[in-house]
Design a protein around this nucleic acid. Structure first.
Lengths: 115, 115
DNA sequence: TCCCAGGTAAGACTTGCATCGTACCTTCCC
DNA sequence: GGGAAGGTACGATGCAAGTCTTACCTGGGA
């Protein structure tokens, strides 16, 4: 059973939920940035500057949290998100590497690749 | 550009499309069975006995095909699906192992785990 | 030739997802 | 205490995903 904040235990992390969570480019971007950051990095939701409203950001972070990809810890005023690296690596070894390796061509749509 | 049958080239296989395709449990089941089978195994759509209508099966196989996960080849009367193992392994090494490792607890919902 | 099995295509329908606006809560700082 | 910043909750909305039925095509066998 997930804890009071909605974090599933390691054994409760389901592949389906993880893949669904990672199917969204915005959520994949969050996980990618977290994966690229030093281990243990904690960032606030707003620090990712996602191009959506505050409410939508909350929604995406909840999805990531309930899938078991991130852990959100209270930090007084705000709430910092950390990657559940160890847990994910144990359940799905190699998955984070795949996400990290993605080069987001879509976001650079403004710059012509063949230019 | 995908070929006339909708198969993307290796370099066109996108992580987002692949994850979206694999987010569905039915499609994951197809890929899992194909991954577990001997290399080169070709199976017809109907041989998977998915619990949905014929038209829906076609839809799911098209999704898998357009994502680049399977290749569908004409075989006279029917159409056989093969896993694009080499292509997927090159683009996303380790991904198939994750899918193959999933134990589908959901499908065995009828049997009490703690019984 | 006729019929059946396997697939596909088009259209309709339902549900869920991503999104937003608004209202509200908490904490920090003045 | 009051205000601003960061998040959450709730309700509403628009669109895409998954599903079905029906109609149709193709190839094989009697």
């Amino acid at each position: 059973m997930p804890d009071s904040e909605g974090h599933p235990a390691v054994d409760e992390i389901e592949l389906g939920a993880v893949l669904s969570a990672l199917a969204d480019p915005l959520r994949r971007r969050v996980v990618r940035e977290l994966t690229a950051a030093p281990v243990g990095t904690a960032r606030t939701c707003s620090s990712f500057a996602l191009p959506v409203s505050k409410a939508t950001v909350t929604y995406h972070f909840r999805t990531l949290r309930e899938a078991g990809l991130i852990r959100q810890v209270d930090r007084g005023n705000s709430r910092a998100a950390t990657l559940r690296r160890t847990d994910i690596d144990r359940r799905f070894p190699g998955l984070l590497a795949l996400i990290a390796a993605e080069t987001e061509a879509v976001e650079a749509a403004g710059t012509a690749e063949a230019g």
